[in-house]
Nucleic acid binder design. Structure first.
Lengths: 333, 333
DNA sequence: GTCCCCGATTGGATCGATCAAACCGGGTTC
DNA sequence: GAACCCGGTTTGATCGATCCAATCGGGGAC
C-alpha cells in the first residue's frame, strides 16, 4: 500500500472537498445522493478508514471504554470474566466503540487510573465491576460527572447511577423451589456470614423460597467462601438431629465442599441428597453439579448499551437500572 | 477543574516555549537542569498529562497493543485467560502501553480486524494466542511487516517470528519423573490423538521421562479432550493385565475423568494410584489434583517485552523466541 | 576584535479529522 | 430590485502534540 488514505485523498479522488467527505460519513443526509454515491465509491476504492486519533482530537470523543481487570479471579470463578469481557467487547464493537483494559491494586488506585485514562487517552466512560457498600469509585466518578455503569447494584446509600445486576435472590429462590418440587422438606443454606451484600441477597432468596412453601426457617452455619468452608458447614449440619436432605449454596466452591462431605459419608448426590451451587463455573459443569447461572453475556451487553445511551445523551435524566434473572442449570437428577 | 492542561498552558506557566516542555518530557537531556526543574514544577502544579491522540497524530505511534478475546474458553480452562490479560495489561502499563481488546469469529476475520485496527486506531502491534499449523494470521502479519508476538510456537513451516511458549514436554517429563521417584513403574499417558501440536509435545515429554528411567513404552488410548474421554481411557487402561498405577494427562479435564474412574473402582487417589493433570486449572486446585502449571503471567509479560523491543527497534534482525518451563504443582500425596 | 561553533531554546508547519462560517446560484418575499 | 432564505458545498481555523529549521547568547580560536 502506497500511502494512508485520508479525508483529503478521498476528497481529491471524488473531486469534492474534505468536508463533503466528512459529511458523507457523519451526516449523509446533508449530501446530495449523486455526490454521496461518488464519494462512497472513492472511499471504497481507496480503502479509507477514519483515523480515530485525529477525530478524537477534534471532537474530544475517543470511542473508548475503560475496564479494570482485577489481579486474578480467586477461587473457582474463572470464565465469568472471560465471558464478560468478550460480550463487552463484542457489543462495544457493534456500536463502534472499543474496550481498553487497565489495572489497579485497589479502589483508590482505580480512581487514580480513571484520572489518568481520562487525561491521557480521553476515555469516554467506564464499566465497573464488584460494587460494594460505600464505594469510593462511584462517588469519585459521580462527583466529576463522568459517564459509567456498574455491574452490581449500588449497595449503600450512594447516589443513584446506572447499573446492571443479576437478581441473586431470585436465583436461590429458583433453586429452593426446585428442591421443594423434588420433595425435599429440609433444605439448608450454606453461605457467608451476614454483612456481605451479595451473600445476604442470596440468603434472602432461599428464605423466601422456604416461606412460600410453608417451611420453617432452618439453622445456618455461616462460613467463609471456599471448599473447606462448605465441607465444615455440611458436616455440622448433617450432624444435627433433623439433618437436611438438600443444600442451596452461595457459591460453587461451597457447593463442592458440601458434595465432598456427602461423598465422605457415603451419601450419593441426587439419590440421597441434592446440592445446588451458584455461578455455574466450569468446575460445576465438569463435575455434574447443578448451579445457578448468571447471564453474564447479557449483563455485559446491557452495560455497553446503557453507557452508550449516556454518552449519546439519549439517556434521560434518571439513571437506568437493570436487574436480570439468573437461570437454574440442572445436572444431577 | 477549569480547562485541560496542554503543552501550551504548561509552557506559559513556566515561561518557556512548547517545544521546551516537550523536550523535558521526551528528551530531558536537551534541557538545562534549572529550566527542567521549573517546567517539571509547572507540569506537576497544573496536573498536565500528554494527550495520546495528539501525540499519535504526529508520531504515528498509538502505544496501543491489540489482543483478540476469543468467544469463550471451553472446558475447564478459565482463569488462564484472566491471568494472561492481567499480566499483559500490567506489563504494558509499565512500558506506557495499553491493551485494546477486539473480537473475531475465526482467523480470517481476525486478519480483517487487524487491518481495521491498524487503519482506524493505529494500533502498534498485536499479541496472538493459540497459534497452529499453517497459521493464516502470522502469515498475514509477516507479509505486511506488522509487529506482533505469539503465545505459542510457529508449529508449521511458517517464517520465523517472535514467540513465547511454555515447554509442554518439559512439564509432562517433570510429572513423569516425579511419579518415577515415587516408585511408580507403570505410568500411563492419557492424551489426544496424534496430530495436535500441543498434544504431541506433551506426549513426547512423557515418553522421554519413561525412557530416561529405563521404562518401556506403554500402550496408549488416545481420546478427545473432556472428562468423558479421560474416564473411558482410564477404564480401558485399568482393564489391561499390567494396569498402570499412575497417569500423566494432557489436560485437567482428562485428569478429572481418570480420577472419576479410579474412584468408581474404589481406588484411592494418592494411596492406590496417582494422577497428574495439565494447566493447573482452578478445578484442579479445588479438587486437590496435582497438575502442571504454565507460568501464564510470565508468558504475557515476556510477550509485551518482546513486542516493545520490536517497536522500539532495539530488537535485532533475528526474531526472539522464549520457551518457559512449567512447574509441577503437587497436591495429593 | 571577528568569526565560528555549540548547547539551549524558540516559532512555524504539520499530522487528519471536525467545526464554524462563508459562499453560491436560484427562487421568494416585500 | 434589494434583501432574505436555502440546500449543497467549500474554505480557513482548530484540537494538542512533535518535527524541523531558525535563532540566541556565550566561549574559544585565530
Amino acid at each position: 500500500m502506497a500511502q494512508r488514505a485520508t479525508l483529503n485523498s478521498v476528497a481529491e479522488a471524488a473531486s469534492v472537498s474534505r468536508q463533503t467527505v466528512s459529511n458523507v460519513i457523519n451526516s449523509p443526509e446533508l449530501v446530495s445522493p449523486e455526490t454521496r454515491e461518488r464519494v462512497l465509491e472513492a472511499i471504497d476504492r481507496l480503502g479509507y478508514r477514519p483515523h480515530t486519533a485525529a477525530r478524537q482530537l477534534r471532537t474530544t470523543r475517543s470511542q473508548i471504554i475503560g475496564m479494570r481487570i482485577a489481579p486474578v479471579g480467586n477461587g473457582v470463578s474463572g470464565v465469568v470474566l472471560d465471558q464478560f469481557l468478550h460480550s463487552l467487547t463484542a457489543t462495544a464493537e457493534e456500536y463502534d466503540h472499543r474496550i481498553m483494559l487497565f489495572t489497579a491494586a485497589d479502589d483508590e488506585a482505580e480512581t487514580r487510573a480513571y484520572a489518568d485514562l481520562i487525561a491521557s487517552v480521553g476515555v469516554d466512560g467506564f464499566v465497573l465491576t464488584h460494587t460494594h457498600h460505600d464505594d469510593l469509585r462511584t462517588r469519585w466518578l459521580k462527583e466529576r460527572e463522568l459517564p459509567f455503569v456498574t455491574f452490581g447494584r449500588p449497595w449503600g446509600d450512594e447516589q443513584a447511577h446506572g447499573w446492571v445486576d443479576v437478581d441473586g435472590a431470585r436465583g436461590t429462590r429458583l433453586a429452593t423451589e426446585h428442591l421443594v418440587r423434588q420433595g425435599h422438606r429440609r433444605i439448608a443454606f450454606v453461605g457467608w456470614p451476614a454483612g456481605s451484600e451479595t451473600g445476604d441477597d442470596r440468603r434472602a432468596g432461599w428464605e423466601a423460597g422456604l416461606a412460600a412453601a410453608g417451611l420453617a426457617d432452618r439453622p445456618q452455619i455461616p462460613v467463609f467462601d471456599g471448599v473447606e468452608g462448605g465441607r465444615s458447614a455440611a458436616a455440622r449440619l448433617l450432624d444435627e438431629p433433623a439433618a437436611p436432605t438438600a443444600f442451596v449454596c452461595a457459591s460453587d466452591s461451597l457447593a463442592l465442599g458440601v458434595v465432598g462431605e456427602l461423598r465422605e459419608r457415603g451419601l450419593r448426590l441426587g439419590a440421597d441428597a441434592s446440592v445446588i451451587g451458584f455461578d455455574d463455573t466450569p468446575t460445576a459443569a465438569v463435575l455434574g453439579l447443578s448451579s445457578v447461572a448468571q447471564p453474564i453475556a447479557e449483563v455485559a451487553a446491557e452495560c455497553v448499551r446503557q453507557l452508550r445511551a449516556t454518552l449519546r445523551g439519549t439517556a434521560g435524566p434518571e439513571p437506568v437500572s437493570t436487574l436480570l434473572a439468573p437461570r437454574l442449570v440442572l445436572r444431577t437428577t
